[in-house]
Amino acid sequence: MAAVKKEHELIVSVSPHVKSEETVSRIMWTVSLSLLPAFVMGVYFFGPRALFVTALCVVSAVLSEYLFQKGLKRKITINDGSAFLTGLLLGMNLPTSLWSFNPFMIHVPIIGSFIAVVITKQLFGGIGFNIFNPALIGRAFLLITWPRAMTIWTEPTAAFVALDAKTTATPLGILKEEGVGKLMEVFGDQLNLYTQLLVGYRAGSLGETSAIALIIGAAFLLYKRYITWHIPVSFLSTAAALAWVFGGKDLGTGKMLLFAGDPVVHLLSGGILLGAFFMATDYVTCPSVRKGQIVFGIGCGALTMLIRLKGGYPEGVMFAILLMNCFAPLIDRSMKSRVFGAVKEQKK
């Protein structure tokens, strides 16, 4: 028993398992680069305001990190790209309508970035030690604090000029409040619905809408092996399966109809692609053991669909990932000690 316990104490390893600072910064900048297609599409659909909101987030995230580290006389690490990436991800998770002087709303992204970088990451000891994904905590904080402002979605225009776009509901919002029928009414037929979701011509957070651009970015990361398939695949397939089984509704009575849901709509709308490829895979806040990552992904997918179908919010990706972030150290712990259970086999 004593021997086992001792080994147990030895398995303290901190993610991310990085070898040098250079690796960290290369990863951070590459991930930022891979988000570029989706971001460009967001700016194309939602106009210059999307650019302003994101730029504000990036600048205030980097500045918060700089001031905090300066204030505590720590090493300044803004060049590693981690604060930049946090700001970029936070910006891409916000609605364009936040760039608005009347009502005055532009302090919202700044506060979000501060919460993300300082409270969620730096207070916990900086990069590598945060428990939660900083950008998602920033967004959750904003959603709870300004529930109205954070859910005003502007209509995509694809004109780049419109400064005063009309507001509308997101596909998931329509699905939750009014059902599939209304969704079809808005988008015409099913094919049209799928194409528009794929391209990203829909309301939503400014960087989450274009599925195809996100997939291109993710493919690049997978190809470069900066992320592995474990989390995205288990996340998305669990969500798709649950959407198919429990997502259907009888149009007349409104009761649940088993095996009649539309997984495609659920996979292409909301922030699930952005979440599964770019945020759940964050090295620091997901389990480092492969098996644990699959458990983590399944948990994310299941919680996402639980919240989408049964919960109080139309979109559940953010909360699902944050909830699984809570469990990540626990998953790592139990999976790792199971590996050390191999000691038992040696005994025979």
């Binding site: 904080f141 709870i144 919680l303 919010y313 909360f319």
Partner: peptide, 10 residues
């Protein structure tokens, strides 16, 4: 904050 995701579930 993460647990707020459960709100409104039931």
């Amino acid at each position: 904050l993460a647990f707020l995701g459960f709100s409104g579930l039931i």
